[in-house]
Computed example of a mutant assay.
Amino acid sequence: MSGRFEYLSFRDCDLDDPFFDSLKNDYPEFERWFSHKQSNNDFAYVYREYGTIFAFQYLKNECEEIELQNSSIPNENRVKIGTLKIEEDAKGRRLGEGLLAIALWTWQQAQVNQIYLTVFEHHEMLINVLKKFGFEDVGINLRGEHVFLKDKNRLSHDDPYKMFPYISNGFEHAKYLPIQEDYHDTLFPYSELSRTSQNVLNLSVANGMTKVFIGFPRDPESLDYKRNQPIAIYRITKAQTRKTFLSVVSSFGVVVDYRVVINKRKNIMTEEEYLSFVGNKSYFNREELIRFYRSGRNVIVIKMLYNGYFGAGNNVNHRWLQEKGYFVGHPYETLLEPEAFSEILREGGKNEQDIILD
Rank of each mutant, 00 (worst) to 15 (best):
V205W: 14
N199Y: 08
D219S: 08
S204P: 15
F213S: 01
K266A: 01
R242S: 09
K264R: 09
T244V: 12
F188A: 05
H184P: 00
D257H: 09
I179F: 07
R195Q: 12
G253C: 07
E273K: 14
Q198C: 12
N199F: 05
I233Y: 10
S204Y: 00
V248Y: 14
Y183S: 08
S204K: 06
V260P: 04
L275G: 04
M269I: 05
F252L: 07
F188C: 07
F245S: 14
Q229P: 13
F245I: 05
A232I: 10
E181D: 11
E181L: 00
N228Q: 05
Y234E: 01
F252H: 06
D257Y: 13
T244E: 14
N207S: 15
Y190W: 13
I236V: 10
T196G: 12
N207G: 15
V212W: 14
F213I: 08
K243T: 13
S191P: 01
E272F: 10
T186F: 03
P230S: 00
K243S: 05
P178G: 04
Q180K: 14
S204L: 08
D219M: 12
E272K: 08
P220S: 07
T196Q: 15
E272N: 13
A232Y: 14
Y190R: 13
S191E: 05
M209G: 11
H184W: 03
P230Y: 01
N202M: 04
I231D: 03
P220I: 01
L193E: 14
V212Y: 13
E273M: 10
Y258A: 05
V254G: 00
R242A: 13
Y190I: 10
V205Y: 15
S222F: 06
V255N: 06
E272R: 11
F213R: 03
E181Y: 01
N267E: 12
V200E: 06
I233E: 05
I231A: 02
S204F: 02
G253R: 15
V256Y: 11
Q240L: 06
L201N: 06
T210F: 12
S251T: 11
R227Y: 00
N263Q: 03
V200I: 13
L275T: 02
A206H: 13
S276G: 01
K226D: 02
Y225M: 06
Q180R: 15
D224I: 07
N202I: 03
Y225P: 00
V255T: 07
I179P: 00
Y225L: 05
V200R: 10
S251Y: 05
T241Q: 14
N202Y: 00
I262C: 01
V200F: 00
D257N: 14
V212N: 13
S204T: 14
V248D: 08
R235S: 00
I231V: 14
